[in-house]
Amino acid sequence: MLPLLQIQPGILLLIGLAVTTLLFWFFWPMNGGLALITKLIRNNKRALLEDALKYIFDCEYNKTSCNINSLAGHLNIAMDKATQLLNRLTTLELVTLNNQSVALTDDGRSYALRIVRIHRIWERYLADQTSVAPADWHHEADRIEHVVSKEETERLAAQMGNPVFDPHGDPIPTAEGQLPKHRGVRLNTLQEGEMGRITHLEDEPRSIYEQLVVLDLYPGMQVYVTDVTDKKITFVAHGEECILTPLFAGYITVEKLSKEETQAPKQELLSSLKIGENAEVLGISPNCRGSQRRRLMDLGIVPGSKVSAVIKSASGDPVGYRILGTTIGIRKQHADQVFINRKN
């Protein structure tokens, strides 16, 4: 018999299992073997240098202090490695060291701004055009920013109509490196009875951002603070009551609003329409973006148009809505993002 077949089937099976697992692991995107190898080969030094510049820039922008300890902590590297990195940055004349604090030179700042621009444009792209989950936008962009070229990013920006904000509400620096001054206040500084519009959700750390996404919070949303205590902040966003600890609320930046600017808080959703019912469209949630939003508008879902639910799929999910004389199947996840006004 052939040598290969003389191996016991059970052992061969185990070998097969091992090979298959290895194969899966190797080709798994993001943290599989192939991805790890490309990550290693890819200019690792460049990534670290750029991340450091970005961090120092962030500190400057938010007017917090930045030193070697916080840098090492943020980049998750050892102290001696952080020292090496800072030395390299100084020899490249990208940063200056003054006692303990680190500051960017003009060159360093424009380099950092370039990276920030690439990062935020890609976040915008991921949010608008792809099905990448909100919690992954930041990390995916973190990976992309070190590999794409400036030209590629500019093409993408032009294609999206040169966006000025990333999906978390951060302004995108212009190609010339301009950035508006930091504005807004943190949600935990608002008092009872004050109104605001969310302008920014901090995307790091990921665990906190995930919580904010689960609560369906997004930039552009109006909030009304109803109760403030030491332990928690209660506020109403889109008619839903949310409770956050002051720590979590600190990750949300809002712009204060006067009472006159506010809209009616709670709105009904298209998905709540039962078969045979009619309504009028009020608008599409700011949380529905990019091509999906345009698609809905192309189909006639604009403020003022009449809509009625007519049929339900045999499997229950897409519901057929009659809009402008056509029947269109819309999934629940998208019908959840259309506001309606039921007619009496």
């Binding site: 798994w28 995107p29 993001m30 991921l126 055009q129 792809t130 099905s131 990448v132 989950a133 992954d136 995916e140 990019g290 091509s291 999906q292 698609r295 809905l296 189909l299 049929i311 897409p318 057929g320 056509t326 029947t327 269109i328 199947g329 819309i330 999934r331 998208h334």
Partner: peptide, 17 residues
């Protein structure tokens, strides 16, 4: 859709002529 293709452009609608 959970791995290599999650970063590709996506949207949904279905017309029932």
């Amino acid at each position: 859709s959970k791995s290599v293709l999650k970063g590709e452009a996506s949207s949904f609608s279905l017309e029932l002529p």
